[in-house]
Design a protein around this nucleic acid. Structure first.
Lengths: 119, 119
DNA sequence: TCTACGTTTCAACGATAGTTGATATGTAGG
DNA sequence: CCTACATATCAACTATCGTTGAAACGTAGA
């Protein structure tokens, strides 16, 4: 990921409605949510949401697929991953204890212990 | 971290000069960099940079300390950590394989393998 | 083909963010 | 105390972003 893309991604996340959309999609998982459902979830008018979804999509944070009359959006986990990686790149500089807390943050996610993940 | 704080943080990072400042400070490590040095590094006028530094500080992404005539800024690793955690919270939903790539991103950082960290 | 539904596009307005220049604060040395 | 240096604050301007309403597109069923 280059700086331009990271900038677009962070700017996209720095907006109330868009951040809520991404968080809703991250929570929803790979099945995603329809645009209409998202509009209700984040309480935004459909045309307005469409604008934000386009921006998030362009920033590589979400993807879309058509399913009948609906368009289903889902989180682009790879894009989110790249973004985190870009932000924390070169964080060590020979002092691993410095950025260890940042790594620990993701450790709070159940998926780090894949074998013992809930269920 | 609550939504309001995360929004401020992402909005702060969604700006060219501020993103560069944070990345420069993340790379610089806990010793940090003086405001003047940062101004040269990101090629921004001093008064303008001051504005951005204030915003980053308010967002909890950097901290400052005075040292003689200079003010030294450094990355707030805990704040960055909280931000990542907020973004990826509830990413599993019973499907750990979904967000595993995001976790792997941080694994690329040398500090994840603390015992074998370079030197 | 016609209608209904879901989603997207477009133009226009109001609000907000970033830059600039001038000025103020705070610190060290003569 | 006075000057020089580093950084911060303020007001004003410009550009950009987010919202709104009207209209178009694309899909499914009657």
């Amino acid at each position: 990921m280059d700086e331009r893309q990271a900038l677009a991604a962070f700017a996209a996340l720095g907006q109330e409605h868009r951040l809520r959309v991404v968080r809703a999609l991250v929570t929803a998982g790979p099945d995603g949510l329809a645009a209409g459902v998202l509009a209700e979830t984040v309480n935004v008018a459909g045309n307005n949401l469409s604008f934000h979804l386009k921006e998030l999509s362009h920033a590589g944070l979400i993807t879309s697929r058509r399913e009948g009359k609906s368009v289903i959006y889902s989180a682009a986990y790879a894009g989110l991953s790249d973004l985190v990686q870009f932000l924390m790149r070169d964080c060590c500089q020979g002092h691993p204890e410095v950025c260890a807390p940042a790594v620990g943050a993701l450790a709070a996610c159940d998926c780090t212990t894949e074998e013992t993940a809930h269920a």
